[in-house]
């Protein structure tokens, strides 16, 4: 498969994403500068973590206006699969490709640690390869990861089975103590209604090699690859 990993000024998990897609999973992945207008011939788009534009205004608020985001919008509208990780999730929310917003952590502190994630649904192209009831261990690293949305949006997310991951205890319970940032419904990741665009705060690319303390993150990339196999390429722009 061919992946484009977007590179905004101060994206800083861009190389990590390329490393995992290319060197760990053996697919083709290249960095795509945010000033480009076209995605070229790609099967999937990954928006990596980082601090696009320093996140001084509001996370993702400026990045959404980068030229490349128009192409991403079109790609997504045509059914192309897009995954936003951390800052990528924030950008997708700002761009309106995903509902809700990510606000300052409840603790007001940046938080970097490995967390437990309950997989709320395996009925998505980003979770389909995850064994039922498997609890994932994946690191988070963010200051603005508190998922927020109004009640009707939350209701929609639940009704449409759009919640992908939720912060959980080691036993899989969705408690307040397990919630590292105050996200509503312990939400760590969601997808859109069409299930082709997803965002998550945890970093699966940091949990894809055993030496770095776990490989649960690979299941997410493997789901994506499974979904893309046997799919028609969306019309690229």
């Amino acid at each position: 498969m061919n992946f484009a990993v977007l590179q905004f000024p101060a994206s800083n998990c861009d190389q990590d994403a390329v490393h995992v897609l290319k060197n760990v999973l053996g697919h083709s992945a290249r960095l795509l500068w945010h000033k480009e207008n076209s995605l070229g011939d790609v099967d999937g788009v990954l928006i990596p973590g980082g601090f696009s534009y320093g996140d001084y205004l509001r996370t993702g608020a400026i990045a959404r206006f980068s030229p490349i985001m128009k192409a991403v919008q079109l790609f997504a509208e045509n059914g192309g699969m897009v995954l936003g990780i951390c800052n990528g999730f924030q950008i997708l929310c700002e761009a309106g490709l995903l509902p809700g917003a990510l606000v300052r952590n409840r603790s007001l502190q940046f938080c970097c640690e490995r967390v437990h994630l309950k997989v709320a649904t395996t009925r998505s192209g980003f979770t389909r390869a995850i064994p039922e009831n498997k609890l994932l261990q994946i690191p988070i690293a963010h200051g603005d990861g508190c998922y927020f949305a109004d009640e009707s949006t939350l209701g929609e997310l639940q009704k449409n089975d759009q919640i992908l991951f939720q912060y959980a205890t080691p036993q899989g319970m969705l408690t307040d103590a397990a919630n590292p940032n105050g996200s509503l419904l312990n939400i760590a990741g969601i997808c859109n209604k069409n299930r082709n665009v997803a965002g998550m705060m945890p970093h699966p690319e940091r949990a894809s090699e055993g030496w770095l303390g776990g490989t649960d993150g690979r299941l997410i990339f493997e789901s994506w690859l499974q979904e893309l196999t046997g799919r028609n390429k969306p019309s690229a722009t």
């Binding site: 800083n12 998990c13 190389q15 990590d16 490393h19 995992v20 973590g49 502190q109 940046f110 938080c111 970097c112 640690e113 690191p139 690293a141 970093h203 690319e205 940091r206 090699e209 030496w211 770095l212 303390g213």
Partner: peptide, 16 residues
Amino acid sequence: VYRQYDHMVRNGSVVC
């Protein structure tokens, strides 16, 4: 202290 530092970015942290 170190929870406030991103100690894993760049995918090279073998011992945190």
